[in-house]
Design a protein around this nucleic acid. Structure first.
Lengths: 221, 221, 221, 221
DNA sequence: TATGAATGAGACTTCATTCAT
DNA sequence: TATGAATGAAGTCTCATTCAT
């Protein structure tokens, strides 16, 4: 059963999952759960659905995960890691153009590779961030503070347009995640999505180009 | 009971609610439902919750709306109107700087004044746009086609940076709606939200500034 | 409101229905209710259905009839009269062949003209005769006793085959009412019903012929 | 859960109930349901009632049968088999007197042993045969066609009085089923029922005697 | 008379979870 | 581990009836 206390552990301590087969099952469960929770929400997803998607019986699924809520928390904590990773990797050492460009691309790649994670995160925040509020207040806040310092340094150096740095972060998050969260809408309006290579490149170009032009003091070379 | 066929009518024809008291109740119901659906989703919201929030008995609520699903559809159709309105008003006659700036501000005002509507729309899209797919494919697509033409004309005139115009729309939507959809996260990280006048101004400035710099050929005056 | 105590009164004392329009409404209500109760049963019929069929609002219908149960009882008591009438008219003075023949024809006419009444009666009996048990035990029992005496006299006279006379009554009831109660089945198997003149004649002939041959000492002339 | 598609299967395929205990439960459920549906109708019977009668919890009952409607259909399909069986066994090889006599007795035995089935069938037909119309049109119609051929042959041979053979079938059905369907009325008027051995014999004698005398060319030996 | 509004007592059904094997 | 059986707590919706006008 999942350790229901530690919300942040990506690899939840499980009474199940210690064996080879068990671990594999656990993976399948988490994958299936992510896909379904991201689509139907916590309440909207039925345990039986997840079990079917993971190829287990409902009872057996619960044997592994303890409860629906615990599973949701486990999925969420895994998602969190994915969500925070790109920001952690923002490189303060390189020049801002390169750093921001890399960051935006990594975020778009995340949107392309883990759209469900992005959507789950979005739904969780929109619904009040009940379960992740702690993470927001600690890990994320801290990470943001650090990033803000970097951005401000760049502004002080005259490399970036002067603005509240957090808004810049919000804009990057918003634009990049939009391609995952609103994928259905985008597909309806363009006929394509990030999984299409050309479309990915085009989106990358549009987002990076516009934002960099918008915040760099000199147009990007 | 709601007219469940016409999903697009903002003022759902009600079997009940034709009288004075009925109409007032209907308003209260739609308001309460929007707030709750946006927060807890369709499945996560209980009819009784909505009834309580609207000051009616559960039974009486159902007398007006017929069913939870029908109510959801009614709320959604109302939300849709709010969501599409700003884009409809985009003025092709004025110069692009003014037009885009106005549009962004209107979108931010919408995020400030109707954050629930924005969130409901977002959730609906993220969950596959089951109910609004028709609207996406017809009304929205048409509106976008028209707007794209305007943007392309501006690009042809050398006023805007050349890019796929749809990405510009996506960026505007993403950045402006982000302030409503991720309000909790933003509040955690900044301590404020769009309801704060100064913060609204600051956000406006940041978003409009960055985007306009990012897409106008000459820096905005 | 109907007098809910007196189950047998065909013209229930109503607080409504004293005026011209009221009486007309009451008729329409009873007709509509009979048709629906006969088809869907007491529980299976909704007050609103009856109201719609009678051209009144649900509330107004209840104003007239007091309650669904009271209406059901009123309809039933009316039905009862129809059901008992033919037996009351069985003429002990004429010869048995004529008397039985007439009775069977009257029963078949009743099945043709008031199939709903027959069905309602049948359903009521099948469901335990909760409401009509009193009538069964008093009026019907008495009527049957009288008829049995007549039949026995005819047997004593050697006009009829000797048998328990009640079974003869049951057979007549069963065969004649069958054409109303199982009309759907009959129509499926023959393509016709008692409303068709030829079919009515044919049914009459078959039933009277068989029963009379079955119970008269000498073949009917 | 019941296979709700195949209305005709007497042994409804159940998602649940494959094990020993499950099958036994299923039997108890169907029995209880038949008794109650026959008495109170579909709408008039509460799931909880059936569950109690079967010795299960309401939830567990639904675990087996899926829904009230599905249960009703299952009961009905079982009833159908009972109803059609006697006619299937009508033996064209023996002489008409014997064959008809046997058939009538079998039908009376069915009325004695499965009165609920008879009543349920009757109610279903009276209410329009919504669910069994297909069976009426196919299986029953076919069976009747075959039987009609047999009866006509007998008429051609001069063994039976010439008449539309279907009316003879109707009369047999009507008179025999009457003892089940109108049992309450019969008991009120005679103090007895088919479960009483003497009464059964008497009824048998009366019905067979009358009908055979009514349709055979020579009085039965 | 007539009707829109309102309600409470059900009734069906869903679903996460537990039990027993 | 794995699963069929069982359950209780909820949740939606129906419907006869009453209220107020």
């Amino acid at each position: 059963m999942l350790d229901t206390a530690d919300t942040t552990s990506a690899q939840p301590t499980a009474r199940a999952g210690s064996s080879r087969a068990g671990a594999a099952n656990m993976e399948r469960i988490l994958d299936a759960a992510l896909a379904l929770f991201a689509r139907y929400g916590l309440r909207g997803t039925r345990v039986e659905q997840i079990a079917a998607a993971a190829g287990l019986s409902k009872t057996n699924l619960l044997y592994y995960v303890g409860s629906k809520d615990a599973l949701y928390r486990a999925v969420l904590s895994r998602t969190l890691m994915m969500w925070l990773a790109p920001l952690r990797e923002l490189d303060a050492a390189v020049d801002p153009e390169q750093a921001l460009s890399d960051y935006i691309i990594r975020k778009l790649e995340a949107s392309r590779d883990h759209p469900d994670a992005s959507r789950l995160w979005a739904m969780e925040i929109m619904q009040g961030a009940q379960l992740v509020s702690t993470i927001l207040e600690t890990e994320l806040a801290e990470l943001v503070t650090r990033t803000v310092a970097v951005l401000e340094r760049w502004m002080d150096q005259g490399a970036l347009v002067r603005m509240e740095p957090r808004h810049l972060l919000f804009m990057i998050w918003a634009t990049t995640q939009h391609y995952a969260d609103f994928a259905v809408q985008i597909r309806t309006l363009t006929g394509s999505g990030l999984d299409d290579e050309a479309f990915f490149a085009q989106s990358c170009e549009a987002v990076t180009g516009t934002i960099l032009r918008g915040v760099l003091m000199r147009s990007p070379g």
